[in-house]
């Protein structure tokens, strides 16, 4: 087990976002967290990456509790987040954005190697490496955000709504890339509203409902589950 979330409670003031969720992430897996708006999916990711502090619970990664750590230490441990809405640095060039992703690393030749890998995976980014990130299309910005996260050479990548605001064709392309990143050895925790796409590439999945885990299991099982089909796959 690579990452273990245990009884996690998070509140925003009086509003309870997570009411004691527990789940695990094994090495080499793609795990999807699916659920409706406000179910607590993004909150879960931000709590793992340290941007939000939980009221209660633990997040164990390689026998260390991430709850007590500031975000920059968590990145150092090998957990990298692709935030919701991409959040690229708009007035920096594509190349500068990618360099920011390697901020915690010191070895220049290794950083160069990672940059080469990212460009191999996203040739479009190399074509536009001197363009300002704010002028990229949505799909390109998503690629950039993912490339930026890869620059820290993460063991675990946290992906928040990669399909948001993208055309269906591009969504397919992005999910192919996610699968490919996973095949080359990165464990992925994926948060998605697009349950259909998420379940098609994930190994396992958890269904979040108002801050609690309602269902969990293998992705194919969930995709065939009557309840899930009704609630999240738009079938009746």
């Amino acid at each position: 087990m690579l990452l273990e979330v245990n009884n996690l409670h998070v509140s925003y003031g009086a509003i309870r976002a997570l009411a004691g969720i527990s789940f695990t992430l094994n090495k080499g897996e793609i795990v999807a967290l699916i659920g409706a708006n406000g179910a607590g999916k993004s909150t879960t990711l931000c709590t793992i990456s340290g941007l939000i502090k939980p009221a209660q619970g633990s997040i164990m990664f390689k026998n260390m509790d991430l709850v007590k750590m500031p975000p920059h230490k968590i990145v150092n441990l090998g957990i990298s987040q692709v935030p919701e809405g991409r959040r690229v640095f708009p007035d920096m060039t594509v190349l500068e954005n990618l360099e920011m992703g390697a901020y915690t690393r010191k070895n220049r030749s290794e950083i160069k190697e990672s940059l080469k890998n990212v460009f191999q995976r996203f040739p479009r980014l190399e074509e536009r490496k001197h363009q300002l990130a704010g002028t990229l299309s949505g799909g390109e910005q998503q690629m950039l955000a993912m490339g930026r996260a890869l620059m820290s050479k993460p063991e675990v990548m946290l992906l928040d709504e990669p399909s948001m605001g993208l055309a269906p064709m591009l969504v397919k392309e992005i999910f192919e890339i996610i699968k490919d990143i996973n095949r080359s050895g990165t464990t992925i925790l994926l948060v998605e509203q697009n349950a259909h796409m998420a379940l098609s590439i994930a190994h396992r999945a958890y269904v979040l409902e108002t801050g609690e885990i309602a269902l969990s299991g293998r992705a194919e099982e969930l995709a065939n589950n009557e309840q899930v089909r009704k609630a999240y796959l738009g079938e009746d």
């Binding site: 941007l51 975000p71 640095f89 708009p90 007035d91 920011m100 901020y103």
Partner: peptide, 23 residues
């Protein structure tokens, strides 16, 4: 410098900067 780029990243998007490992 590295320091300066971190400052620009904070200006452009502090949440993303934090997620990139900048204290």
């Amino acid at each position: 410098s590295r320091f300066g780029r971190a400052l620009v990243a904070i200006r452009e998007d502090d949440i993303a900067a934090e997620a990139m490992g900048i204290n």
